[in-house]
Simulated scan of single mutants.
Amino acid sequence: MGSMTRTKATEAMWSERVRAWRESGETAEEFARSRGFAASTLHGWSSRRAYADMPRSVATYSREYGDWPLCVAVSML
């Protein structure tokens, strides 16, 4: 298996684990411990998925400036 295929397989596996964790109602620590991996790894992949799900401009801003962007609502008066 090539490294690109292995990387995609790893991303798919962790995406599924993050989805299952979010649906489980368990804490990250409970979920990870019962399945034999570290909660910190689950958190890391969860953050990675959050960036992947953001619009590209927001994700780029967040990576460049190291902070979640603030959302500002503007109303027209």
Score class of each variant (00 low, 15 high):
58 V>M: 06
49 R>S: 12
48 R>L: 08
41 T>Y: 11
67 D>T: 15
48 R>Q: 08
51 Y>G: 03
59 A>L: 09
69 P>G: 05
59 A>W: 06
51 Y>D: 05
55 P>K: 01
41 T>E: 11
43 H>P: 06
41 T>M: 10
56 R>S: 15
66 G>T: 01
51 Y>F: 13
43 H>Q: 09
69 P>Y: 01
69 P>I: 07
50 A>D: 10
61 Y>K: 03
60 T>L: 08
47 S>V: 08
66 G>Y: 05
54 M>E: 04
67 D>S: 14
57 S>K: 11
43 H>E: 11
55 P>Q: 04
70 L>W: 01
64 E>Q: 10
42 L>G: 00
45 W>V: 04
58 V>W: 01
69 P>E: 03
42 L>N: 06
63 R>F: 01
51 Y>I: 07
67 D>L: 11
53 D>G: 12
55 P>Y: 02
51 Y>E: 02
68 W>L: 13
50 A>E: 07
55 P>S: 06
57 S>N: 14
46 S>P: 00
70 L>K: 14
65 Y>A: 09
51 Y>K: 13
61 Y>C: 06
63 R>I: 10
57 S>E: 15
50 A>K: 12
52 A>P: 04
66 G>M: 00
54 M>R: 12
42 L>H: 02
66 G>D: 06
65 Y>P: 02
70 L>I: 13
71 C>W: 13
47 S>H: 11
49 R>Q: 13
43 H>C: 06
65 Y>D: 09
63 R>T: 02
62 S>F: 10
42 L>W: 05
61 Y>M: 07
70 L>E: 12
70 L>M: 09
44 G>Y: 06
50 A>C: 08
63 R>E: 03
56 R>W: 09
52 A>S: 00
60 T>N: 03
47 S>E: 11
63 R>N: 05
53 D>P: 03
64 E>R: 09
44 G>W: 04
64 E>P: 05
57 S>V: 15
65 Y>C: 10
51 Y>C: 02
61 Y>P: 02
59 A>C: 00
53 D>I: 04
53 D>Y: 01
70 L>S: 14
63 R>L: 10
46 S>I: 07
63 R>K: 13
47 S>R: 15
52 A>C: 00
69 P>V: 09
45 W>F: 12
68 W>I: 13
41 T>L: 11
61 Y>I: 00
49 R>N: 14
41 T>Q: 13
49 R>C: 10
62 S>Q: 15
57 S>C: 15
62 S>E: 11
49 R>M: 13
62 S>A: 14
43 H>L: 12
45 W>A: 01
52 A>Y: 00
60 T>A: 11
48 R>T: 06
66 G>H: 07
58 V>D: 03
63 R>C: 01
46 S>H: 09
57 S>G: 13
57 S>I: 14
48 R>S: 09
43 H>K: 07
64 E>V: 12
53 D>L: 13
61 Y>H: 08
61 Y>S: 05
66 G>L: 00
59 A>T: 00
60 T>F: 04
70 L>H: 10
61 Y>R: 07
53 D>K: 08
65 Y>V: 13
69 P>C: 04
56 R>G: 09
51 Y>R: 15
68 W>R: 11
67 D>Y: 10
45 W>P: 03
67 D>V: 15
62 S>C: 15
67 D>G: 14
41 T>N: 10
64 E>L: 12
